[in-house]
Design a protein around this nucleic acid. Structure first.
Lengths: 235, 235
DNA sequence: ACCTGAACACCGTTCAAGT
DNA sequence: ACCTGAACACCGTTCAAGT
């Protein structure tokens, strides 16, 4: 066949097929040969569109980052940085839980993925507008990413394992049998995520007040958050 | 040669050699053939001691978990749960930063690794003794793991990339050039970790007070933490 | 029990050849 | 420019054979 008059492949088609394969069969199922077969071409064809396999996986990860809602950051009145962060974290986590198998790729950082960088940029900009100093704004973007990706990673794969013999109660006196159950594990993940997110936002509120970062909007006194209160209820 | 009178291999020797290889050349360098060569045997020999390669990597990950200090949990007076959690998080992170290449394996959860389970058990037990309800104690162990492993994962590999052309300021108006520098990245990781850890502990303090979990030690009033104060200074 | 070589069914990537 | 088959240098794992 050699070269067809109309290209068989495109970057988009490759990425879309790779994403479907990752979602349905996991990262390990994506070999260049398997992916090519799925596309109806031979393995080496992919190298006309991507430098290597890793670049394909990075592109897949970026389509997931692109699903993260960022609208709360430009909508927001600066005083609402906690709510914006909260809503963003939910959207971020939702994107990852929809595509759990690509999380290991996403978790290693934004790298050079455009959508990943766009996320980092949006969070940073919103925090600075809310009054956070640039260094702190950078930290917030990073630490939120740590928490959300860490939770998405730790949740799937096999947080705990489905084999009763793995956990001798003599060895782990506090670990109940309940830890074995997969649906219990899912509830733990949700509870831990909600609890951690709330704690992070409350704790950042403490630092925000201590630094009086809201001063330019509410005079030099205690502006913004008058008292530390629990974060908004999670839906 | 066939079978020698004294075994050439042992689980410990395999794990130790694998750990050294992971540390010096990364996860990808560990193939069964390469590891076997390092040990002076042929590839299939490893299968006399481990069921498969993944089991070897799990064992390596467990030696890293085993380095996490847990003494602060049984030493602690229950009121000091925040300090214990803080010190533990530092020790946890230190263990991971010493062996960054194995973090992806560790990050997927305790699985059936004994040392990983011992860690989960210790945190849970200490939080319950401090007055946290069991469900919350479980959440705390999980969310701390999310944060620490997420930060260790996001830090290495390539949080950002060392190539100026990757970041067009027109695309990411808030991302400065400084993001490119590797040593700047390291400072960001440390700052983000400290900030996030402090926020988590402060935020958990808010929830602890709101739930009055300390009541059995200080009467049914506001015991334990009278006010929300910043977490102890990080060294 | 513990190691070996041979073998199976794969990999990612390069490259000359084809249109 | 874009696809192909052949080839290179690898993989993880199984298994019969050896002691």
């Amino acid at each position: 066949m050699a070269r067809p008059r109309k290209p068989l492949l495109s970057r988009d088609r490759i990425v879309e097929t790779a994403r479907a394969l990752v979602d349905s069969e996991g990262l390990d199922a994506v070999s260049t040969r398997r992916l090519a077969a799925e596309l109806g071409v031979s393995g080496p064809s992919l190298y006309n569109h991507f430098r290597n396999k890793d670049e394909i996986l990075e592109a897949v990860a970026d389509t997931v980052s692109a699903k993260v809602d960022l609208s709360m950051f430009d909508a927001a009145d600066g005083r609402d940085w906690r709510r914006a962060l909260h809503d963003w974290a939910l959207s971020y986590r939702a994107a990852l839980t929809e595509h759990p198998h690509i999380v290991p790729v996403l978790a290693r950082g934004p790298g050079r993925r455009p959508a990943g960088l766009r996320v980092a940029d949006a969070v940073f900009g919103a925090m600075v507008r809310a009054g956070w100093p640039p260094a702190q704004a950078t930290y917030i973007g990073a630490l939120m990413r740590y928490f959300v990706t860490g939770s998405a990673l730790g949740s799937f794969a096999r947080g705990f394992v489905d084999d009763e013999t793995a956990y001798d109660p003599a060895d782990y006196p506090h670990l109940g049998q309940a830890h074995l159950l997969a649906d219990h594990q899912e509830k733990v993940d949700e509870g831990a995520f909600e609890t951690g997110l709330r704690a992070l936002l409350d704790g950042l509120g403490v630092q925000y007040e201590a630094g009086r970062y809201a001063s330019e909007r509410a005079g030099s006194g205690a502006g913004g958050f008058a008292t530390v209160r629990p974060a908004p209820k999670l839906p």
